[in-house]
Design a protein around this nucleic acid. Structure first.
Lengths: 190, 190
DNA sequence: CGTATTTATTAAACCAGTTTAATTAGAATC
DNA sequence: GATTCTAATTAAACTGGTTTAATAAATACG
């Protein structure tokens, strides 16, 4: 779990004994492409760290799939709102690529935060970072054209386009597959 | 500062002595409508709690004002990214209504988090809440029509429409004033 | 007050997306 | 390798916004 340890330490210093205490609760899991970590109706008991792979976070409303996020290498994730509120999820976390995650249960995570002020701080700082990332993403969505956002995504996360089918990327960008295809065509003509 | 204290305790239990320690660093400030808490180029030293009033958080790019948020009674706020990274802001925090805020400097806030595990936890939980709010807002932006979002805003924060001119609300919704006016007209005809 | 200024609405032309449906391209499976 | 299924592209008609400009309504102020 060197990668997880390193990730945590990139936020704030943590003593070896606190780190050892925290890491003992994480379990390594191998996930097969096509399986579901979470489906609508389920309660969310766990928090995940993606060691390697890709999970797509989406909902289906009125038959329309809406991709909210792709979680790839090095990211912490879960379906946070139902996780916190202890209500059933309305979303999917679908394994889009064979993956390896480290999993910690909510009750264990709370034990860790209780036990270690440093790891509680890590929790605060990682949440802060998640907030900022998301805030910036929201402002991109609001202020940029679809074409600009497509180009930015190409630049910021080029590997996504190898890993994930285009219609899911379209959904992530808030477009229809037809719309994304038109944008690509327009760009290729220039 | 009863309201601030209550707000903090709504997140997690905090002992009286920790609370006293934390609150001592907050300063009450009265802000006049039209003044600026933050302007582009400035470094952000403080974190704010809005006791009462309204502050508009926006940028101006290519002469276009883009409203990112309205901070009203009971919310914690600052220009978070420059605050954390200690880089100059590119945004405005403009007082849109005579307001009262409690202010704490970044260095004092760090002291508080160092001193009290409970308040560090409050920091984590409040950031978590901010993240979720924002995530849900982003998904509204992505998945709802402009008309639906206008109606939701009317329902969720009706007082905004009394406090803030319509062209700023249009910007907040990602519309032009003309666009919002059309939506309102369409709705009034039904 | 009446005048100046700002804010909101309306109209017209335009455009970047949508929907639906047909076609082509690519992948998986027998 | 042919067949089947899924994904991506294209076309055509449509729609909900945009921009620009003019007008009307509301607000501020000398």
């Amino acid at each position: 779990m060197k990668d997880l340890e390193q990730k945590i330490r990139s936020f704030t210093p943590v003593s070896d004994s606190d780190m050892e205490f925290g890491l003992q609760f994480y379990k390594r899991e191998e996930l097969k492409k096509g399986s579901h970590l979470i489906q609508p109706g389920q309660y969310i008991h766990d928090f995940y760290f993606m060691k390697q792979g890709c999970v797509t976070y989406y909902t289906i409303e009125d038959g329309i799939t809406r991709v909210m996020e792709f979680f790839t290498d090095g990211s912490f994730f879960t379906d946070l709102y139902p996780y916190i509120e202890e209500i059933p999820s309305e979303s999917y976390l679908e394994v889009t690529e064979d993956s390896v995650v480290y999993t910690i249960s909510k009750s264990d995570a709370l034990k860790v935060f209780d036990h270690s002020h440093a790891l509680e701080r890590f929790g605060r700082l990682s949440m802060q970072k998640a907030f900022i990332n998301n805030f910036q993403r929201m402002n991109r969505i609001k202020n940029l054209s679809n074409q600009e956002r497509y180009l930015q995504l190409l630049e910021r996360r080029p590997s996504l386009f190898q890993r994930v089918p285009q219609y899911l990327i379209a959904s992530y960008l808030g477009l229809t597959p037809v719309g994304l295809s038109k944008i690509r065509k327009r760009l290729s003509k220039q």
